[in-house]
Amino acid sequence: MSVDARHGLNRHVTLPGSLVLDGGGSLTPVEIAYETYGTLSPERDNAILVCHALTGDQHLASVHPRTGKPGWWARMVGPGKPIDTDRFCVVCPNVLGSCMGTSGPASIDPATGRPYGMAFPVITVRDMVRAQAMLLDHLGIGALAAVVGGSMGGMQALSWAATFPDRVRAALVIASTARHTAQNIAFHEVGRQAIMADPRWQGGDYGDAPPAAGLAVARMAAHITYLSEAGLTEKFGRRLQARDAQEDPKLSFGFDADFQVESYLRHQGLSFVDRFDANSYLYITRAMDYFDLAEEHGGRLADAFRGSATRFCIVSFDTDWLYPTAESRTVVHALNAAGLAVSFVELSSPYGHDAFLLDSPALDRVVGGFLGAA
């Protein structure tokens, strides 16, 4: 399999064989949509796998076909950039359970000829990683120079290193965690209940009339966790939303969006429903909630990495309260206990969890420096 796409190429493959799932049973067939950037070396040893977050996709550094916006990490990936496609072949797959071409609830169930809906099997982060390994097998990539991911992408990077240690030379984990806390699970449950309470959800069988209102509320609740209090205060404070260019903003004494932050969250919710599937949101958030790398390895996190030769870099942000620095330190301590090479840095940013997606020269230097030694 040739992998050569210097400017990014959107691909889709139906993989042979079945994917055995953590929850029992298997999935057949397995379809994966992915993008590639750069050229695979003759030795096939320069591949980097970039794993996306909950609402991300394979459009890493290319224009998104639905929104027309640049790829979610276009500033990070490309010729001469921190993830340098002049040196590396970058592969970014859409995760299992998603809605951008990889097998998920909106895919056709071969047994019925209709979309799976809620008949799609419940999946885990490790299932996502196993599907990605199947894709790499298809591409003829035995080992990775590095696996890189932020947020849920970081969970996948950790799972890769634990599940396939012989296939990962380096792992870069940004703004992530080795397990979901009760607070993480609680926020996701609010979002799931908002979707399932929408009359249009119809038990997941909503066809062309999705539960847009519920999904928008789910996105609004989640988006708050991606920001910081300081960032929200700086950007919006208690400033009022202008409704008429000829008048000063004022209270409506009603339930319209009086405050700018309300208008911002409503916009985030409405724009999200145009590009994401409600059932996929249910499945992927559930996979994240089930993620507990220590539990998968007998209850001790260090045992997940014992015997590995993978080199790690762990990055956190000081204003990230979704996956705070303490969560990253837990991973670092486990890696130290397992005797692995690990570097750790906490970066300062006013932007909270989303800082890894935004302009951050300090993160660029960390990523470029770590991968430069790959």
Rank of each mutant, 00 (worst) to 15 (best):
F291P: 02
S280C: 05
G299H: 10
E295K: 12
E327Q: 13
R311H: 08
M288L: 13
A287H: 08
Y323Q: 11
M288P: 09
E295A: 15
A304W: 12
W321C: 03
C313Q: 10
S308N: 06
T310N: 04
W321F: 11
L301H: 10
D292L: 10
Y290R: 15
R329P: 00
A294E: 07
G298D: 09
E327F: 14
E296N: 06
A278L: 04
A302R: 14
I284H: 02
F276H: 04
I284L: 14
G299S: 09
D292W: 01
T330Y: 07
V315F: 12
A287S: 13
I284G: 01
F312K: 05
R300W: 06
T330W: 04
L282Q: 04
R300S: 13
E295D: 11
T330L: 08
H333I: 01
E295S: 13
N279M: 00
D292G: 07
L282I: 13
L322T: 01
S308T: 14
D320K: 08
L322Q: 07
L335H: 10
S308F: 02
R286Y: 05
A334S: 08
F312Q: 06
A309Q: 15
F312T: 06
E327N: 12
A278Q: 11
F312R: 04
R275M: 00
T319N: 10
R286T: 11
I284F: 00
D320Q: 07
D303N: 15
C313T: 13
S328F: 02
T319Y: 05
G298L: 12
L322I: 01
F317T: 09
T330F: 05
C313H: 13
G307M: 11
T319A: 03
A309H: 14
E327M: 12
A302K: 11
A304F: 12
M288S: 06
D318K: 07
N336F: 01
A294P: 03
R275Y: 00
I284V: 14
Y290L: 14
R311L: 00
V273N: 05
M288D: 07
F317D: 10
F276V: 01
I284K: 02
F317M: 11
T330M: 11
T285I: 07
A278R: 10
Y283N: 04
H297I: 13
A278C: 07
A287Y: 11
R275V: 03
V273T: 15
S328M: 13
D289F: 01
N279E: 03
A326Y: 01
H333T: 14
I284M: 04
M288E: 05
H333Q: 14
A294N: 04
I314F: 04
V331G: 12
R306W: 01
W321A: 12
Y283E: 02
W321N: 08
A294Y: 11
A302W: 08
Y290G: 14
S280N: 08
D277K: 00
D320R: 12
S280E: 02
E295C: 08
D318E: 04
L301Y: 12
H297P: 13
V273L: 01
T310I: 04
Y323E: 04
A309E: 15
A309I: 00
F312S: 10
A287R: 07
M288T: 09
V315E: 03
N279K: 00
L282F: 00
F305M: 12
